[in-house]
Amino acid sequence: MIRPDAPVLLEICDLRASVEEQPILKGVNLTIRAGEIHAVMGRNGSGKSTLSKVLAGHPAYRVTAGSVHYRGEDLLALLPEQRARIGLFLGFQYPVEIPGVSNLEFLRVATNARRQEQGLEELDTFAFEDLVRERLKVVQMDPAFLERSVNEGFSGGEKKRNEILQMALLDPLVAILDETDSGLDIDALRIVAGGVNHLASADNATLLITHYQRLLDVITPDYVHVMAAGQILRTGGKELALELEESGYDWVDAELERLEASAPEGLATAQASRTPAEVG
């Protein structure tokens, strides 16, 4: 839902970031307002996963220039846990397994950390159980998963549902979903997408990072951005995704070459850095 007067939740300006001294993001600009659903598409190595990790504060990525403001606040100055507490959520492409730590306990501690920030009262074990059981329905998840260790032994689909369950509990204002569709069969995809749609509202925003059109068939984006070589190359409506599906990414190379010719300095490095070092 696009409302030009809606408040800006996330404002990314000329964001540049490196991993192991290797520049990956080379000037990303993006503004996200409440109520919007954005999709960032691009090939492997284009920098889209890096963007999500940098926004969430992953310690392996170093911001070298630019700024990110979250509701006017300097996001980059915050620790990862502080970002989460004020309402930024990253749904991981590969959620890690944490043996020994009970999923239920983990969800409760995380939810209470967020609630405390929101000025809500902390939930005791009983109240939390009630809440979590209700939210489980959003992703049609078996309560048995609460008793297990965080993501341990979960299938790919179960892990992704657990991610959306966390999103349902943490009630974020900006949810970044990194390749949430990867590794899901069609039923799981529908459940996960149903969860995302259910949670989207006029007050929050969603940033989908994806490779394929198929997620966008079930979650309709307001904006589609095409990322390549660490920059957003083109922005359009949902029809841009369809165009990509049809004609592939070949035009991206042509576009990059053209840009390179016109601004050799910036993009020569951009080209060279599309290396496997990029994560995701």
Binding site: A56, G57, L79, R83, A84, F89, A110, A113, E117
Partner: peptide
């Protein structure tokens, strides 16, 4: 990082 990104210190 995973735990931190869920708001856990």
């Amino acid at each position: 990082f995973y735990l931190q990104s869920r708001g856990i210190g």
